[in-house]
C-alpha cells in the first residue's frame, strides 16, 4: 500500500458518501452538493492512480483531464442551481416530490 492507494481509498469513501446523500436527500441543493462531492471523489481517484508511474513525476494526462473536469463541474453546478431556482420559483419548493406522500 502506498500514498496513492491511501488517497484512492479515500476517494472511494467520498464517492460512496456522495452517492448515498444523492439518493437519500430530497432537497435539490443537497443533491447538487452530493454530486460535487462525488465528482471530487472521482477526480481524486484519477489523480491518485496517476501517481503510480514508478518515477518521481506523476502522469500529466489525468491531471489535465481533472483540470478540465473541475471547470466543467462548476459550469454544470451553475446550470443545476439555476434549474433548482426556477423550479422552486414555480412550485415554491426546492424538493423533489415524495411518491410515498401522494
Amino acid at each position: 500500500m502506498s500514498i496513492a492507494h491511501l488517497y484512492a481509498l479515500v476517494s472511494v469513501g467520498l464517492i460512496s458518501l456522495g452517492l448515498y446523500a444523492l439518493i437519500v436527500h430530497a432537497h435539490l441543493l443537497r443533491k447538487i452538493l452530493a454530486i460535487n462531492v462525488m465528482g471530487s471523489g472521482i477526480f481524486l481517484l484519477l489523480v491518485a492512480l496517476a501517481q503510480r508511474t514508478g518515477t518521481a513525476l506523476p502522469d500529466p494526462v489525468p491531471h489535465a483531464m481533472v483540470i478540465t473536469g473541475i471547470v466543467v463541474a462548476v459550469s454544470a453546478t451553475a446550470l443545476a442551481l439555476t434549474l433548482m431556482l426556477k423550479l422552486s420559483a414555480q412550485t415554491g419548493c426546492a424538493e423533489l416530490p415524495d411518491k410515498e406522500d401522494e
Partner: peptide
C-alpha cells in the same frame, strides 16, 4: 500532496472559491 500543483491551483480558485460563491447566491435566492 499528490504532486498535482496545477490541479491544486484550479481547485482552490474554482472548486472552493467560485462554486462556494454560486451556492451561496443560490441559497440566498431560495
Amino acid at each position: 500532496r499528490l504532486e498535482a500543483p496545477d490541479v491544486a491551483l484550479a481547485e482552490a480558485a474554482i472548486g472552493a472559491g467560485l462554486t462556494g460563491a454560486l451556492l451561496m447566491v443560490a441559497l440566498a435566492q431560495l
